[in-house]
Amino acid sequence: MLEWNLWRALLDGTWITVQVTVLAALLGTILSILSGLAGLSSVRAVRWANQVYVDFFRGTSAIVQLFWIFFALPFFGISLSPLLAGVVTLGLNMGSYGSEVVRGAIRAVPRGQTEAAIALNVTSFDRMRYIIFPQAAVTMLPPYGNLLIELLKASALVSLITLSDLTFQVQILRVNGSASTTQLFTIALVLYFLLAMGITGLVRAAEGYLGRGLEIGRGARRS
């Protein structure tokens, strides 16, 4: 097996991968919710602007977006650090996919809930905050979990803009000839797989937590 200092380098890389993924997930989640709500707005200009954002980021490739932000943006006087460029790109990218997830889940909440809230004179903000969104959140979680795993996988792209994540460390060790190539890549893939399983576990736990007391949670049958 590998020597301790090689493991050290791989684990340092894994830590960067975790950081990038968590930060981008935070940004991506906020953008997903904002963009999902914007997609349901009654103001046409808001819906339209939102559609431009979604189509733009879904229509181009994540790696091309990353390269544009990291290599082309400095020509406009905006230089982002590799970490910031990675987090911003991955977050914007995730938001464009999460938008549909949020929008779909909110629309799937039965109309009667909205009507009842209106009848009870709940303000439109409180209606979304306390009645509609908490119910939609349970439906959102499984596809949201998939998005997080896609994000984790996409985080490997930051190695291409010199951020020393797990993929980057593997490439360095490979070039140094410190360990066999097969061994290095196998370990890296296993580490990514473990992280992905961790995400799956967390999402399952969240499903159980958010689903409590709701008819549409896990285990309960949808009527």
Partner: peptide, 21 residues
């Protein structure tokens, strides 16, 4: 499950550098 939850980029590098071995 394994292939689907690990990055394509790493798989790509792996094939590219490992197969010649």
């Amino acid at each position: 499950e394994f292939i689907r939850s690990t990055p394509l980029l790493v798989q790509l590098f792996m094939l590219f550098y490992v197969l010649p071995h």
